[in-house]
Amino acid sequence: MTFHRFTKRIHAAVLVCLALALPAHAQTGRGPATPEEAAHVAQIATASDKDPVATMTSADGRWFQKWSDEVPDYNFNPDKAALWLMNGAAKGEFKRVVIFQHAVSTAAFQLQHHIQDPRKISENFAESLESVTLAGLEGVLRAYENMLPTHPAIRSAELDAALAARDKGTLAQFVAALPPMPRR
């Protein structure tokens, strides 16, 4: 399979996941996120920073994945950092871990800052979207750093470049230069 076809399949998979998740909100009949759930997501994100594989496969990881699909008042959608990660910054099986880490990091940030949908047009639209994207990538980089000593095969030149940008204080510029999300 060519890289182009693989990329198209990833994009299609992301769009299908989004399409499937949207009706789930209507079907669950559940209420908005509670303060207890927000605290739980923050705890999961902190645990995932240290050991994303264990967190992703734990009961908490499964709870987060189900909860993020069903909670009606928040939208947790892929962003350009998630697309960048899926398109090659993360390799092999590590890709699933990185995508989980990105999702839990962005969700924790959105809940903490009461950003229900960073894609909605508002007075601080660009700022909200960029800050959520940056928070997700920062979470991925924390997990990546913690995993490298025991999993050297996950090393990625792209993630190393993002680490270097973070360490120089230029991660926001790095994120701004990532390719944009495809238009729907």
Rank of each mutant, 00 (worst) to 15 (best):
68 S>A: 14
47 A>K: 09
118 P>F: 06
110 Q>T: 03
59 A>R: 10
170 T>C: 07
68 S>D: 06
76 F>T: 01
127 E>D: 14
136 G>M: 04
108 A>Y: 05
18 L>E: 14
27 Q>P: 00
60 D>R: 02
163 L>Q: 10
135 A>R: 03
169 G>D: 09
94 F>R: 06
171 L>C: 12
36 E>F: 07
51 D>Q: 13
131 S>P: 01
98 V>N: 01
116 Q>T: 10
84 W>S: 02
156 S>F: 07
12 A>M: 05
183 R>M: 12
4 H>Y: 02
5 R>F: 13
84 W>N: 03
142 R>K: 14
134 L>D: 02
35 P>W: 04
103 A>E: 11
14 V>H: 03
181 M>R: 10
38 A>K: 08
83 L>D: 02
78 P>T: 11
43 Q>P: 02
140 V>P: 00
86 M>F: 00
96 R>H: 03
47 A>R: 14
62 R>Y: 04
115 I>E: 04
101 Q>G: 10
139 G>N: 08
43 Q>H: 10
4 H>M: 12
16 V>H: 03
101 Q>Y: 07
107 A>L: 08
134 L>M: 11
174 F>Q: 06
67 W>A: 06
123 E>Q: 10
130 E>I: 13
74 Y>A: 04
14 V>R: 05
77 N>L: 15
67 W>G: 02
103 A>G: 15
35 P>N: 06
139 G>V: 09
118 P>V: 12
120 K>F: 06
103 A>I: 04
132 V>Y: 03
48 S>A: 15
75 N>L: 14
132 V>S: 03
68 S>I: 11
144 Y>P: 01
3 F>E: 13
51 D>T: 11
148 L>N: 05
168 K>W: 13
129 L>P: 03
152 P>V: 08
164 A>W: 12
135 A>N: 04
163 L>A: 07
94 F>L: 11
124 N>C: 06
163 L>W: 00
72 P>I: 12
95 K>T: 14
88 G>M: 08
142 R>E: 13
156 S>N: 10
27 Q>T: 14
95 K>H: 08
118 P>K: 06
108 A>S: 15
84 W>E: 04
49 D>I: 04
121 I>Q: 11
107 A>H: 05
30 R>F: 12
179 P>E: 09
94 F>P: 01
38 A>M: 09
35 P>S: 06
29 G>P: 06
43 Q>E: 15
